[in-house]
Each structure stands twice: as structure tokens, then as C-alpha cells.
Simulated scan of single mutants.
Amino acid sequence: MARVPYVEREDVPKEHRDLLVSSLQDRPLHVYRALGNNPEVLAGLQGFLSSLWSDSGLSDRRRELVILSVTREIGNEYEFHQHVNIARGVGIDDGTIAAVSRGEFDDLDDEEATLLRYALAVVGGEVEDRDHDAITDHYDESAVVGVAALAEGYTALGGIIDALGVELEEEFVGWDPTAESE
């Protein structure tokens, strides 16, 4: 059960009401409704995440691979679940999603594997010079900043979701979407 109420449109100032609705799913999401208890924070966080989404320097596929890898690493079911659906929408198949969830990057190209290893090092607070050198073989400084911010941004969002006890709107797809549900 969520630790804060899920606000309704009429509970927030008019200028913030549209923030409760996911632009990708065209419906209110629990995460936004929980954050709507502080509409200014919701607006700021959405602005930040929107920038990470569009300005990270990554393709849609690579952005989603990073988000899936990071949200799995921190164990955040809510964001992993949301981004499985988004990943599918940008052409990532369930086998790749499952492999990323297991931390198995062998079937990815070298650039993607390096990207995910770097993102996980960022989240773990363990970026070494060799990790930085490896990522800069593939990305310029602007994208490296974008990747680090994307990884930490979704780590922060996952922590907020966990602290507030935000619940999924539907049944969790699972860490391995290829597995048969029991």
C-alpha cells in the first residue's frame, strides 16, 4: 500500500494537473499521482527526467537498455515494469530484456555492453578510469554526462518510488518477461 495518497486531478493546482498523466501511456500513473502531493517537486522531477530522456545523447534503444539495467540493479519493479513496455515499443525483444535483467551482455554489441557496464558502475559508485576510458571510446563527453545522469536519475526515482511505497497499476511483468507465468 502506498505511504502517501494518490492525488486526483482536482487535488492539484490547474497548472500541474497534466503532470499526473503519462505522455507515453496517456493515463495517470501512480508514480505521478504520489508525487502530486508536492506538485512543484513533481514538475521539477518531470523536467529533469524529460531532459534525461531526450538529451542523454543515446538512441531510444540504448536509453531503454540503460534504464532497464539500472532499475533491475536497484531492484525497482515499478520502473522496470514501465520500461519493459517502453523497450518493447522501441523494438527491444523480450529475450534481450531478460538477458539485460540477468546482467548478461554477451549478445549485445560491444558499444551496448560497454554502455551498460558503465551505467552499472555509475550506480554502484565504482567508476574507475578504465570504465571511463571504455565509454569514451564510443561516446563524447556530452553523452557520457548524459549516461551518468540517466543512470543516477533513475536510481533516484527508484528510491523515491520505494520510499513512498508506490504500487504498480497492473501485475508485474517479472524480471524475465520470457518466463512462463505460474
Rank of each mutant, 00 (worst) to 15 (best):
A2C: 13
R3M: 03
V4R: 00
V4M: 02
Y6Q: 07
D11S: 07
P13R: 02
P13D: 04
K14I: 05
K14L: 11
H16T: 07
D18H: 14
S22I: 13
D26Q: 14
V31S: 08
V31L: 08
V31T: 11
Y32E: 04
N37G: 08
N37Y: 03
N38I: 02
P39R: 00
P39M: 00
E40V: 07
V41Q: 06
L42N: 03
L42F: 08
A43N: 06
A43Q: 07
G44L: 06
Q46E: 09
S51D: 04
W53K: 11
D55F: 04
D55N: 15
S56R: 04
G57T: 02
G57L: 01
L58K: 10
D60R: 11
R61F: 02
E64S: 01
L65F: 07
S69W: 02
T71M: 06
E73F: 09
I74G: 12
I74K: 11
Y78E: 04
Y78C: 04
H81D: 15
H81R: 06
H83Q: 10
N85Q: 06
I86S: 04
A87Y: 08
R88A: 03
G89I: 10
G89L: 09
V90Y: 12
V90M: 05
V90N: 04
D94R: 13
G95W: 13
I97D: 04
A98M: 05
A98L: 06
R102H: 10
R102M: 08
G103D: 09
G103Y: 13
D106I: 00
D106G: 10
D107W: 01
L108H: 15
E112S: 15
T114G: 10
L115P: 10
L116R: 12
Y118C: 08
V122Q: 01
V122H: 03
V122T: 05
V123I: 14
E126A: 12
V127R: 07
E128A: 15
R130V: 10
I135M: 01
T136S: 13
D137F: 01
D137S: 13
Y139K: 06
D140E: 13
A143I: 01
V145F: 08
V145K: 13
A148L: 05
G153A: 11
L157W: 15
G158L: 02
G158Q: 05
G159H: 12
I160C: 07
I161V: 15
I161Q: 07
D162R: 09
D162W: 03
L164N: 09
L164H: 08
V166H: 00
E167L: 08
E167D: 14
E167K: 04
L168T: 12
E171N: 12
G174D: 12
G174T: 12
D176N: 13
P177M: 01
T178N: 06
A179I: 04
E180S: 11
E180W: 01
S181F: 01
